[in-house]
Design a protein around this nucleic acid. Sequence first.
DNA 1: TGCTGTGTTTGCAACGTTGTACAGACTGAA
DNA 2: TTCAGTCTGTACAACGTTGCAAACACAGCA
Lengths: 348, 348
Amino acid sequence: MSLKDVAQRAGVSIKTVSNVVNNHPHVAPAMRARVQAAIDELGYRPNPTARHLRKGRTGIIALAVPELGNPYFAELAGAVIDAAAEHEYTVLLDRTGGRRDKEVLVSQGFRTRVIDGLILSPIELEVADLQGRSDDVPLVLLGEREYDAPHDHIAVDNVAAAREAVRHLLGRGRTRIACLGAGKDSANRPAHLRLLGWRQELTAAGVPAPDSLVVPVGGWDRADGARGMARLLDSGLRPDAVFAFNDLIAIGAMRTLHERGLRVPQDVAVVGFDDIAEGRFGAVSLTTVSPDKQAIARMAVASLLRSLSANGEPAGRELTAPHRLVERESTLGGVRDRPTDQVGTKGR
Amino acid sequence: MSLKDVAQRAGVSIKTVSNVVNNHPHVAPAMRARVQAAIDELGYRPNPTARHLRKGRTGIIALAVPELGNPYFAELAGAVIDAAAEHEYTVLLDRTGGRRDKEVLVSQGFRTRVIDGLILSPIELEVADLQGRSDDVPLVLLGEREYDAPHDHIAVDNVAAAREAVRHLLGRGRTRIACLGAGKDSANRPAHLRLLGWRQELTAAGVPAPDSLVVPVGGWDRADGARGMARLLDSGLRPDAVFAFNDLIAIGAMRTLHERGLRVPQDVAVVGFDDIAEGRFGAVSLTTVSPDKQAIARMAVASLLRSLSANGEPAGRELTAPHRLVERESTLGGVRDRPTDQVGTKGR
DNA sequence: TGCTGTGTTTGCAACGTTGTACAGACTGAA
DNA sequence: TTCAGTCTGTACAACGTTGCAAACACAGCA
């Protein structure tokens, strides 16, 4: 079933059928009707593969995220699929597991030529990894990292967002605010900016920001948050608030708090980051920084299409997506509402 | 950058380069080395589009799920991506939103010819919708529905699984077991079999299964579960257990129970279905039916590849994936552990 | 009648790859 | 020396599509 068959059926040339299919001008109405009839009768559908071979575009973009099990990325992927669909693009999904080798592989153009562009949400990728890249497939980077590379990069203002979260806690009278999720190694890891924001805001408020309240975790999953929280409590410290670097960590931390008999928010307030749906329906709903996922997705796709058309023009822009703090139960009320707190604070 | 360039560089014919690339036998070692050198120098990578045009296969399969925001499908998608990768296939992700029109569109071969096969997880699709299908792209159906169509169909044994869940509750001394998630309209909807299992098991145990305990919900999301639970409680009924047709409904229900001051599991035990990670980390971890997602994914991909190679041989098998009941806190203890329960039950 | 111009249709080549068929070179045996 | 048989490498066509340029038809006008 190809143009040839339709052409034969309609008694015209292949090219004429092609013209009809592609809505070329200068096709006589009668001819158009005749060819269309043949197309309908045979149920002809163009072969995208051949079309793409000819045109050099596939209509497919790839999205590579660390892990679909993390609802943030699942929700983001949904948003990207929608945004791509608006431009008649289809999304091919890849998972990196957050592992550098896989990230490098993907960024280097694994699957090059099947895809027109790549949206990559890196975790461990280094700037150097992007150097050897053959530039035929445009790349857009997502997330917190600062890259000095010729690729557009989309993220929320992490430092500002983290500061808002901490400011919110300070405003509730919390002063011993732990932060959960710092990375151990590279200063460049996603956690870096959020840690920076935490430190800046505390310092600005004249509140101590001791390293003992900075809790590194292995990964960014619920179990990591639970373990991190346990370690923090085991160290003997009693924070009155926790700023978790993502919602999963926050959820894990709340689980540990619950197990230890500490109440959220009365004993410990908790703020997360990502605004995943899961946070809205726990026993205690989660206050969190909500990045605008739709906006991120739209910006990413638009960015890619821009690089795709206006080729030659170098990319490398830093685009900032909007975010806002969503206040829910996990930070309700101030310390004054904590009946068990020995140290009274001034009233309203 | 094509075979031609490499051939020119190495001073051989295009076909010879092709032979080297494809590891054909009967290529002299010296020649192979020479060509390989040229390939490496130029950094040649084969063009999949052209290859696929020639061979008729694209190496891409599509997975269409209702919603990525539902962790069950996100986790399942991850499993499918892994399973496909094992066979060197890539996954293109589509979302149907659970809407019939989109499901029909996808099943009818939207994107036909870009993909070698389709794995579809339908919600509202009717058997009739599959009749008009052009059979060039193999289709595998996922989920609970019974289709009498020439396509393989993979699901856990829903009736058995539902019965196990209910039996578990009965074993804990619960007798007023509501079920949450029944559909309103078609008897064919995914909920049907789980409802059937609930009814069968109660009847077998001689426990009444009144329709008043069957709570229909709009969708299968957390908010739907929360509303459904609220409606049930508002009706004045006091179930001592809830069998939710998926984990999200269960989570929403637990939220409502929490808001109403009812304790899980002491006052109301809850069982879900899907075993999403979210259920493991709530304040009260969720007992649930755990379908083996890896197995489902592997079976789906294997099924597809089978239809792809052994074409002609009609598909239409019903494949059953394994499942098991995972017991967690939401059903801990029997009714005897409920201090507020006026009606005492016999002790241990 | 012939010429120009506009509008419509067509043939050819090419995108990059691989299957088929064949040509040439080389080996060993008669 | 010749012949068959094997091993290597090559030419050609085809997958289904579209851009380009040429061919064609026809109307209007001189």
